[in-house]
Structures are given as C-alpha cells and as structure tokens.
C-alpha cells in the first residue's frame, strides 16, 4: 500500500515582490494603481517579499520613514488578493515579524546556490522520451509507446498495430491501425503523412476506414467524444 504522504525535495520558481521603500503608505497607493492596470495578474499567486533594497543598502538613507513595518505590508498584500509566502534578505527583526504573520524565512545563499546548480530545464515536469521506430511495422506486429509519444519513420502495414499513451506520428505509409491515448488521454492526436489505414483510435473512440486508393496526409483528434479526421494542411 502507498504511504499516506511523502516529503520530496523540489524547486519552484516564485514571483518576487521587491520592496524599494519602507513607506507603506506609498506602497499601498502604487499597489492599488498597478493592480488596476495589470488586471490582477498576480491574484492568488504565491509571492516572496524581498527587502534587499532596504537592508543591504546603507540603512539610514531613508531614516525619516523608519524601519519597514512587515506586519502592515503583509496585511496590505493579502488585502490586494496576493499571497505572500516568505521573506528574503530581511533583518532579524523583520524575519521575526514575518514569521509572526505566517511567512517562511528564505535564505539568499540557498537561493543563489540553487540557481547555479540546477539548469532551468530540469524544472520542467518529468516526461517519457518519445519512442522512435525506424523499421517497417508489419502484419501481426504491435508497437506500444508506454507513457509517451510514438514516432514511426517507416511504413505501418495492413494488419500491424501501433499504440501510444501520447500522440502518434507516422511518416511512412500508414496502412494499419493506430491507437493514441491508449490509457485514456482524450487530448492526444494522430498524424499520418500518408494515410490509407484500417482504423484510428483515440482514448477508446474509434473509426474504421474503407480500403482506399492513394494515401492522404491526415490528422485525427477527439471532439465531444467523436473521433474527427481532417487532411493536414500546412499554413505558410
């Protein structure tokens, strides 16, 4: 049986709310203005509050305003339907105030070290590599690309069957049977460079074809549980 939960290491890229002034009044006004303009793009987006401009600089440059009131800032952000989840580059006092408001304390070293070690690409969701078949698939043969897409660079002959959990692309003559979305993914497609096939299936919805003379470039997809086909037309 599967464990009820698990802890896993992970990396997320979060938007940063960089605070350039300790003047909460000004922040409030500008925030209102910006949110009007930006059509609430950041609504419910988790944010990290970065106070580096206030703490890493000479502290008494803006002495008239005094230190940033973290508690007020956090409430202000929440009022604007933003979701502050952490603070970075804060003084110990700021961090303490942030924790009191339910924020996490993030560390610059961890952030920067992480940037260096992990290439941006690895943040993409894991995916199964495409299966590429370079020889003809003949009568009686079956090919199945589990968990991913299938590309066939040769013929799929009458009586042969190719299947994939993802999309299927066939570049040789297609005379057999193709099943995309074999595990039920209705968003999958089939593309045939030269279609003269027997049957197409997407997520269990199928369509059979009469023997034809001559092959056409064809694509197939699902629409309202109906298997649709159309010639492939290139837009130039």
């Amino acid at each position: 049986m599967m464990a009820a939960f698990e802890f896993r290491g992970s990396a997320f890229s979060l938007p940063v709310f960089q605070v350039n002034t300790a003047d909460v009044e000004r922040i409030s006004q500008e925030l209102e203005q910006r949110l009007l303009e930006s059509q609430q793009f950041f609504v419910n987006a988790p944010l990290v509050v970065d106070v580096a401009p206030l703490t890493l600089r000479n502290a008494d440059e803006d002495a008239s305003v005094g230190p940033l009131d973290i508690a007020t800032l956090v409430r202000l952000l929440r009022q604007a339907a933003l979701l502050p989840v952490g603070i970075i580059h804060g003084t110990p006092a700021m961090e303490q105030a942030a924790v009191a408001e339910g924020l996490a304390v993030l560390h610059a070293s961890a952030q920067h070290g992480h940037e260096k070690k992990t290439p941006v690409r690895s943040r993409r969701a894991p995916r199964t590599p495409t299966m590429v078949v370079g020889h003809p698939v003949r009568a009686g043969q079956q090919i199945y690309a589990q968990g991913g897409d299938l590309v066939v660079l040769a013929a799929v002959n009458a009586g042969a069957e190719v299947a994939a959990d993802g999309d299927i692309h066939i570049y040789g003559p297609m005379r057999g049977k193709a099943l995309a979305g074999a595990q039920g993914d209705t968003q999958t497609n089939i593309f045939c460079h030269a279609f003269a096939g027997e049957m197409l299936v997407i997520a269990g919805h199928y369509r059979t074809f009469e023997p034809s003379h001559g092959a056409v470039p064809l694509q197939a997809w699902l629409e309202n549980e109906q298997l649709m086909v159309a010639p492939i037309e290139c837009i130039s």
């Binding site: 020889h135 003809p136 698939v137 003949r138 009568a139 009686g140 043969q141 002959n157 009458a158 009586g159 042969a160």
Partner: peptide
C-alpha cells in the same frame, strides 16, 4: 502479400 509481410516481421523479431 499480407502473409509475406507477416513472415518478414517474424524474421525481424
């Protein structure tokens, strides 16, 4: 032709 195709697949496998 169909049976020849079948036997070619078997040769291949």
């Amino acid at each position: 032709v169909r049976d020849s195709d079948r036997i070619l697949g078997i040769l291949h496998a």
